[in-house]
């Protein structure tokens, strides 16, 4: 049960032309984007709390390290019970897949802001939210971007697993459709698409951003 290369290419091209694959990509990516945005906001907020309050660090900080080691698809049964077998359930595991990683990297980013920058800002009269906005946050950007990159990889995997099991018209569902129809050429086409999107995001978006930021921040 393995289709020929030509057959796969034909399905891939006709799938793109007919819009079937493009719609699936759109559905998957928009879901990812929403989940990832929520995870970023949540992760930054939790990271701030852990950095700011010792009590939160001792309690929540430890819990998050534990939560981080749970693969996010493990949350799926719970998510189905809470939200039903729908878009929300998938969104939930995508979000939860990225949140903990972003929290951890935000915490360490905030903690590693050089004392020198903090002293400079303080002697120039900065304090409170201005200090947070103009020193703590921008100074931790390199670490945040590295964190986002790893979080993105987790979210991407969670999304595919969720869509495969759930529904929602994404790439995962297209894979599942290919399997149930016995259309292995479609399955492999979708796998190729998944690989391409993953590579593009990781190498061309995140890696490039990371090296650019590291150079500007004087880290490499």
């Amino acid at each position: 049960m393995f289709p020929s290369f030509l057959e796969v290419m034909k399905t891939l091209i006709s799938g793109i032309i007919s819009g079937q694959i493009l719609t699936a990509i759109g559905a998957s990516l928009s879901r990812l984007l929403i989940g990832f945005t929520i995870a970023s906001v949540l992760g930054l907020f939790l990271g701030y709390l852990i950095w700011r309050y010792k009590l939160v660090e001792d309690t929540l900080g430890f819990l998050i390290t534990a939560l981080q080691s749970i693969p996010s698809i493990v949350w799926f049964p719970l998510a189905i019970i809470w939200f039903g077998m729908n878009n929300m359930a998938i969104l939930f595991i995508v979000t939860i897949g990225a949140t903990w990683t972003i929290t951890v990297s935000a915490t360490s980013g905030f903690k590693n802001v050089p004392r020198l920058y903090q002293n400079v800002a303080k002697t120039l009269g900065s304090s409170g939210t201005h200090f947070l906005r103009t020193v703590i946050f921008p100074s931790s950007v390199p670490q945040l971007i590295s964190g986002l990159r790893i979080a993105w990889a987790f979210a991407w995997r969670a999304l595919m697993a969720g869509e495969l099991l759930g529904a929602g018209g994404g790439l995962g569902q297209l894979l599942e459709a290919g399997r149930s129809l016995g259309q292995m050429d479609l399955v492999i086409s979708v796998m190729i698409i998944i690989g391409i999107i993953g590579t593009v995001m990781d190498n061309f978006v995140f890696l490039r951003l990371e090296s650019k930021v590291q150079k500007k921040w004087g880290l490499s």
């Binding site: 020198l116 921008p138 921040w217």
Partner: peptide
């Protein structure tokens, strides 16, 4: 406390790279 009437020049420049 620290204030802008007493500005410090540190050994390392401490410029904000961003």
């Amino acid at each position: 406390s620290a204030g802008p009437d007493r500005v410090v020049v540190f050994q390392d420049d401490g410029l904000f790279p961003w």
